[in-house]
Design a binder for these strands. Structure first.
Lengths: 137, 137
DNA sequence: CCGTATCCTTGCCGATACTG
DNA sequence: CAGTATCGGCAAGGATACGG
């Protein structure tokens, strides 16, 4: 099957077999595509963190959202949560093996972003200049 | 700098230099983390597509959302839009070189998803069983 | 310190109708 | 065919207050 484009790059053919199906792509994005999950994963990639540590390391996240995010990660088996029944209470979060495997993916995202950030920014400027009032933004 | 965790896997250290900054990660996710962008990219990875072709290939997408999605991709320089002034009108969409580079990333997402789908599903079952009524889901 | 509960705003997205 | 315009629902997420 020819890809039929004139571009320079070769094509990894991300097609999902022979069906026009949603691969598992949307599943991953529904999991880490939210506002905070990746940032939590990035921080936990550095090592074990406590709740407050995480919150301080991720500027702008609310207590509520940190709780929700970390709960969902725990539910999906990406993070472990260990409670130390001390006073005041201590709760430690750590990536599971699967959670660590995610960091490679996140690194790929970061790399792609770094490589194309400028090109995208410029493309936007150009497009915005050519389409002054277009609803999009 | 030590990573300080006891996990089994080696660590890609996704940290953003020495700052506790958001890498470009959120930028990418804001771009492709929406409901339809990746699916459009996946379809365009196969070759040039017209508007209706895209809509038929992506079940569930509305005309409005396809327009918005494809416009944003165009604005970001990931997709080209060429209008053939025929009657009825024909508009063809194609990935740019940068758009094609994105497909590698999408493939990485699909691969990770395929590898961990089962483990995640099971983790969820376990967690849900242990936390019958917890708001999360 | 580590959450949960509640309220409220925001904007994504779907449905529908209408143009060139 | 390939859009644009408008309305409305709904869920994500922020702010705040309270509890163990």
């Amino acid at each position: 099957m020819s890809v039929g484009h004139t571009g320079v790059t070769t094509d990894p053919v991300v097609s999902c077999g022979d069906e026009h199906e949603d691969c598992g792509i949307r599943e991953v994005l529904d999991r880490i595509g939210d506002k905070w999950s990746v940032l939590v994963v990035v921080e936990l990639a550095q090592g074990v963190r406590r709740f407050r540590q995480l919150q301080r390391a991720i500027p702008g996240i609310s207590q509520r959202m940190l709780t929700l995010t970390v709960r969902r990660l725990e539910r999906d088996g990406l993070v472990t949560r260990t409670v130390h029944p001390t006073v005041p209470p201590q709760v430690e979060y750590e990536l599971t093996t699967m959670g660590h495997s995610l960091t490679y993916l996140v690194k790929a995202l970061a790399d792609w972003s770094a490589q194309h950030r400028d090109a995208i920014a410029q493309a936007r400027q150009t497009w915005d200049a050519e389409h002054p009032d277009s609803g999009i933004r």
